[in-house]
Amino acid sequence: MKTILLIEDNDLIRENTAELLELAGYTVLTAENGKIGVEQALATRPNLVICDIMMPVLDGYGVLHIFNQNPQLAGVPFIFLTAKTERADLRRGMELGADDYLTKPFDSNELLSAVAGRLSRFQHLRPDYDLAEGGLGEFLADARRVSNLASLATDRKPHQVPRRQFIYTEGDEPLRLYFVQAGRVKTSKTTAAGKELITGLYQADEFFGYQALLERLPYHDSAVAVEDSTLLYIPAEEFTDLLLRNADVSQQFIRLLAGRERQREQQLVEMAYHSLRRRIADALLQLHQPGGPPIQLAREDLAAVVGTAPESLSRTLSEFRQDGLIELTSGTIRVLQPERLRRSNW
């Protein structure tokens, strides 16, 4: 049974609304002002909050601000009750992350429809998505249903980017979010000694370039197509507005960024402690798509992912080929026996 926290200073409205929600099968917690409401939420995390805006002690804006800042409460769907319909009030609430509005007086159908809509919308997003296990694709599929995130990449002109063409370079101002429709893109940094370090590889159905947008800082790396690719461009202001209006999507992007950081930390650990043979095997397994096309990645790019010289990479690939684990052709690598490749390097 879903728990709803109702914060409303008008006794009659609070009692009637709570009764209606209970008749609809919800568990209802009530509070007569924002301060008590926050205390109730900290004691019992609700599945949804219905909150009046104009209240004594702590108003609705203050309640939503606390919810957004508190990790225990962040991401809870939030519906404002208001008798005010001025655009400035609506805009302020949306910027703070409100998910819906009900203007008083409202009827029972409006209330129950809004509650059911918010609860069904938010239940599709899981608490966590593991990027290493295809979590980004799963998140995009879920976000398409709950927040129309993927719709940003719909009905836009595709841009054909040939192999080795730069998409942006380190120090550029971020102007857009990128979506890979087809192909593969790498992001990388170049050291003072001229050595390239690949910071990310992105393929079909993945976004990239969002970290600089979130940080509001210039790109800290460069992006280049490692094969002929098709990209969709999403203006920065649309992406930012979406995150401001949808707290659930914002929270999930934060989790995805945390997942990326975990991947990078793991990559550093592997480069420091794992054998070269294992690092190359792990990279091939990460790029391998069961039943899909062979890996098309230049030897120098794969060497940069692993953190070794191209000559060392070539020697190890030859060993894998001799063991019957992979097939090498001009410009491609096909993993023939992924399980043997995984087991042979522990």
Rank of each mutant, 00 (worst) to 15 (best):
K2Y: 07
I4L: 08
I7R: 09
E8Y: 04
N10V: 10
D11N: 12
I13C: 01
N16P: 00
A18I: 07
L20Y: 01
L21G: 06
V28E: 00
A31E: 04
E32I: 02
A41K: 06
A41S: 05
L42K: 10
T44C: 02
L48W: 06
C51F: 00
I53H: 08
M54S: 10
M55D: 06
V57T: 02
L58E: 07
Y61L: 09
G62E: 07
V63F: 01
F67T: 07
N70L: 03
G75L: 04
P77L: 03
P77N: 01
F78N: 00
I79R: 04
L81G: 02
K84F: 00
E86F: 03
R92W: 03
E95L: 06
L96E: 11
G97C: 02
G97S: 13
D99W: 02
D99I: 03
K104T: 09
P105G: 10
N109G: 10
L111A: 10
S113F: 02
V115N: 08
R118T: 12
S120V: 09
Q123W: 01
H124R: 11
D128N: 11
D128C: 05
D130I: 12
L131N: 14
A132R: 14
E133T: 08
F139W: 15
L140F: 15
R144C: 04
S147I: 06
N148S: 04
L149V: 14
S151V: 04
D155V: 08
H159V: 15
V161K: 07
R163T: 11
Y168Q: 08
E173P: 00
E173V: 05
P174Q: 02
R176H: 14
L177N: 09
Y178R: 11
Y178M: 12
F179Q: 06
F179K: 07
F179L: 11
F179E: 05
F179V: 10
T187K: 02
K189V: 14
K189I: 12
A193K: 15
I198R: 02
I198Q: 10
L201T: 14
Y202A: 06
A204Y: 04
D205H: 11
F208T: 04
G209L: 04
G209P: 00
A212D: 03
E215D: 10
H220C: 02
H220V: 06
D221I: 01
V226S: 12
T230R: 08
L231W: 05
L232F: 02
P235L: 00
E238C: 09
E238Q: 15
F239A: 01
L243C: 10
Q251C: 13
Q252D: 07
F253K: 11
F253N: 08
I254D: 11
L256P: 09
L257E: 13
A258V: 14
A258S: 14
R260H: 04
R264K: 14
E265V: 15
V269I: 13
S275A: 09
A283G: 11
L284E: 04
Q286V: 12
Q286E: 13
Q289E: 14
Q289W: 05
P290K: 10
G291Q: 07
G291L: 10
G292Y: 13
G292S: 08
I295Q: 15
I295M: 15
E300P: 05
L302R: 15
V305T: 08
T308S: 12
P310C: 08
R315I: 06
R315V: 12
L317I: 13
S318G: 08
G324K: 13
E327W: 13
G331L: 09
I333L: 14
V335K: 03
V335Y: 06
P338H: 03
S344W: 04
N345H: 09
